[in-house]
């Protein structure tokens, strides 16, 4: 038997329908955010062509990329665990994702510390580099806050296997942040 809820305007709504609407809304949000990052990517190529600064740290770039990719896997595992009702697994993988995300942010902060001397924001490459990594890091921080809220709910047993939308939404957002970095990494570190 399917539970039916009534919206304010009296329309009958099943949980499946609500979930579908939520998912569509999330994808539209992700699409609109993609425009922002695509614009930044175009600005980067418009201003710099195929040029990158030789002092950009290849080691840090590669390391933080691998860390972010791995965090996507742990986020995926957390979502899977929550869906099958394994709250301990969900908690463990969420914690791992939070840790990896924090390490990524620390890596970016360290890169900024080095970059401030090598190519300050007053230079063309510097302004592009700091804007792109800064906006991305802000999204990483937002994702961390969302994941931390979900972790708190899982820890307090406030998340059931039938209502995993908060988990799904925050994990989707986290994967999106990863997809953005998949394009930013070569644009800022590799192409020359």
């Amino acid at each position: 038997m399917t539970a039916v809820t009534h919206t304010a305007d009296g329309v009958h709504e099943t949980p499946e329908k609500r979930l579908g609407i939520n998912q569509l809304g999330m994808w539209l949000f992700i699409l609109s955010e993609s425009m922002l990052f695509a614009g930044l990517l175009m600005v980067r190529f418009s201003l710099l062509g195929t040029e990158i600064h030789e002092e950009v740290s290849q080691v840090i770039g590669l390391l933080i990329t691998v860390i972010l990719l791995f965090s996507s896997y742990t986020a995926f595992s957390a979502e899977r665990a929550a869906a099958r009702g394994d709250l301990a697994g969900a908690k463990r993988n969420l914690l791992l994702t939070l840790g990896l995300g924090t390490v990524f942010t620390a890596g970016v902060a360290f890169e900024w510390y080095e970059a401030l001397e090598a190519f300050p924001p007053s230079t063309t490459f510097g302004s592009v580099f700091f804007t792109m990594t800064g906006l991305h890091a802000f999204h990483v921080l937002t994702g961390l806050v969302m994941l931390a809220i979900v972790y708190r709910r899982v820890k307090r047993n406030q998340l059931s296997s039938s209502d995993t939308w908060p988990m799904e939404a925050s994990v989707k957002y986290w994967h999106f942040v990863d997809v953005v970095w998949v394009f930013f990494y070569p644009a800022l570190y590799l192409i020359s």
Partner: peptide, 29 residues
């Protein structure tokens, strides 16, 4: 590819990036 700098490096790297994004979109998202 970035280290060895072959001809068409830009296209190669972006084709790989698109492939990576596709994997994340389909299997993780």
């Amino acid at each position: 590819i970035a280290v060895s700098k072959p001809p068409g490096q830009l296209a190669l790297i972006f084709v790989i990036a698109i492939g990576k994004a596709w994997l994340i979109l389909v299997y993780f998202m």
